[in-house]
């Protein structure tokens, strides 16, 4: 039903029409109900609610930014801004020849280090397994860390990341976005960094997405 397309919904709100329940939608007694605060969209006969608030749910293949929390003799435990810690096996870095009696995990990654990692398994039955091997992954040695709501990340990387590309090119900054709401900025210019941080803080605190591109451009154009 067209009247329910692109509508703001709250938990328990009915989404009329006969669609397949998808993200944040349940079917109860032949009624579709939203389970989150968000924006309801109908795509390919599926009812979706894009949440406006919430926490990070680990999903396979997500790129996230984490902080080393601790390690045992076999694995590192990484805070991935979620309800479980990410598990990075030692052999992911040392290879198949890893031997706990010969190798020291703290020689590679220490508590407090920031890492760009990818979720290998988002299975809820156990802590998510992560990997540090791959393109754009690894230890982050420098940069500014910014934290925003994970619910805002999908907006930030929508339209094939065109918004991020615009920000990167206009400020000569490298931006690494973690799906878990952590973002690392690298720039030579402190004033450009301040501008980008201002953009992300504005995005994080604003619930009204209208004219967002113009608002972002206005901040980027300041003092130029």
């Amino acid at each position: 039903m067209s009247e329910n397309k692109n509508q703001f919904v709250l938990p328990g709100d009915t989404i009329s029409g006969s669609y397949e329940p998808a993200q944040n939608v349940i079917l109860n007694d032949n009624r579709l109900l939203s389970t989150a605060i968000g924006f309801c969209e109908i795509n390919d006969n599926e009812a979706n609610v894009s949440p406006l608030t919430g926490f990070y749910i680990p999903r396979s293949d997500d790129l996230v930014i984490g902080k080393i929390k601790s390690h045992t003799s076999m694995v590192w435990e990484i805070d991935i801004n979620s309800y479980h810690v990410g598990i990075l096996p030692a052999f992911d870095i040392f290879g198949k020849d890893y031997n706990p009696s010969k190798h020291d995990l703290s020689s590679k990654l220490n508590v407090g280090d920031l890492v760009a990692i990818r979720i290998v398994s988002g299975d809820t039955a156990r802590d998510p397994l992560v990997t540090i091997s791959g393109e754009n992954l690894g230890k982050i040695d420098s940069g500014e860390l910014v934290k925003i709501s994970p619910a805002k990340i999908s907006y930030l990387i929508s339209k094939h990341g065109s918004m991020i590309q615009t920000i990167e090119s206009s400020t000569d900054t490298s931006i690494t976005i973690g799906q878990n709401g952590l973002i690392v900025l690298k720039s030579e210019s402190g004033s450009n960094l301040d501008k980008i941080i201002k953009v992300f803080k504005m995005l994080d605190s604003t619930t009204d997405d209208s004219n967002m591109d113009e608002k972002i451009q206005k901040i980027l154009d300041e003092n130029n």
Binding site: P11, G12, N24, A36, I37, T53
Partner: peptide, 9 residues
């Protein structure tokens, strides 16, 4: 609801 916990109602 504000915390984003999924709720039936």
């Amino acid at each position: 609801a504000d915390a984003g916990i999924p709720m039936r109602d």
